[in-house]
Computed example of a mutant assay.
Amino acid sequence: MKQTQLPLEIGMLLYPGLTLLDLFGPQTVFSWFANTHLVWKTNDPIVSDTGISVHPTATFETCPRELDILFVPGGFGQQKIMNDSEVLGFLADRASRSRYVTSVCSGSLLLGAAGLLKGYKATSHWSAREGLRMYGAEPVEARVVVDRNRVTGGGVTAGIDFGLVVLAKLRGDDAAKLTQLAMEYDPEPPFNAGSPAAAGPEIVEQAMSFMAAEMEKHTG
């Protein structure tokens, strides 16, 4: 498919303790059609919640002011920046001029903390979704929620679905279908345990305990 449009300009927030797949699922979807700016306060490497480092390509000052997509991932380190005025100020500033203001997983809570989801329907990781109410958002149980120019994805793997939805809006269905095929995104999970309802209470309890322990490691 021949591209005749300018590349999309995408600002993707980095922060210590982010979840890599929240970031790289959507980034992989967008990559053929976009200039991606991985943004943090400095150019120093950012260590993810699994210990893998990512290098920022822009700072809050050098990130383009006009973006097609402003994106925030989730992660166990997200709690540490929920009251960070520099982070929230950056998000509010770029959101005011972005075509789409977006997130995956608990990144939606950061959008909420920046005042960007009040009066909007949104989703998040199943364990964090109800927390959106604190920021005036209406939680929705779905893989991807679109409300005007706010697009939010559910937990982690939902970032690929999210990316395809946003790409279709900006570059058309064929671009999204081409990308889905190129990625061979045709999931057949080996277990039916991808939601609390499917996994059952015992697995949910174990998952909550595991995530609480991981959160403590990153915030303690």
Rank of each mutant, 00 (worst) to 15 (best):
residue 119 G to S: 05
residue 119 G to F: 08
residue 120 Y to R: 06
residue 121 K to D: 04
residue 122 A to I: 10
residue 123 T to H: 01
residue 123 T to P: 01
residue 123 T to R: 03
residue 125 H to F: 08
residue 127 S to K: 12
residue 128 A to V: 08
residue 132 L to Q: 00
residue 133 R to L: 08
residue 134 M to K: 15
residue 137 A to C: 05
residue 137 A to W: 04
residue 138 E to Y: 07
residue 138 E to L: 05
residue 139 P to D: 03
residue 139 P to K: 01
residue 142 A to D: 04
residue 142 A to T: 09
residue 143 R to I: 10
residue 144 V to R: 01
residue 145 V to R: 01
residue 148 R to A: 11
residue 148 R to Y: 11
residue 149 N to S: 11
residue 151 V to K: 00
residue 152 T to L: 00
residue 152 T to N: 00
residue 153 G to P: 01
residue 154 G to L: 05
residue 155 G to D: 06
residue 156 V to N: 06
residue 157 T to Y: 06
residue 158 A to R: 04
residue 158 A to L: 05
residue 160 I to S: 03
residue 160 I to K: 02
residue 165 V to L: 04
residue 165 V to W: 05
residue 165 V to T: 15
residue 166 V to P: 01
residue 166 V to G: 03
residue 166 V to D: 00
residue 167 L to H: 08
residue 170 L to V: 11
residue 172 G to Q: 11
residue 172 G to I: 12
residue 173 D to P: 04
residue 175 A to T: 13
residue 178 L to M: 14
residue 178 L to R: 12
residue 180 Q to E: 14
residue 180 Q to W: 15
residue 181 L to H: 15
residue 181 L to P: 06
residue 182 A to D: 10
residue 182 A to L: 14
residue 183 M to K: 11
residue 184 E to N: 07
residue 185 Y to N: 02
residue 185 Y to F: 15
residue 186 D to P: 03
residue 186 D to I: 00
residue 186 D to V: 02
residue 187 P to G: 08
residue 187 P to D: 09
residue 188 E to W: 12
residue 189 P to E: 04
residue 190 P to E: 13
residue 192 N to R: 13
residue 193 A to C: 12
residue 193 A to K: 12
residue 198 A to S: 12
residue 199 A to W: 12
residue 200 G to K: 07
residue 202 E to V: 15
residue 203 I to W: 15
residue 204 V to P: 02
residue 204 V to K: 07
residue 204 V to H: 09
residue 205 E to G: 09
residue 205 E to T: 15
residue 206 Q to C: 09
residue 206 Q to D: 11
residue 206 Q to Y: 07
residue 211 M to F: 15
residue 211 M to L: 15
residue 212 A to C: 08
residue 212 A to S: 13
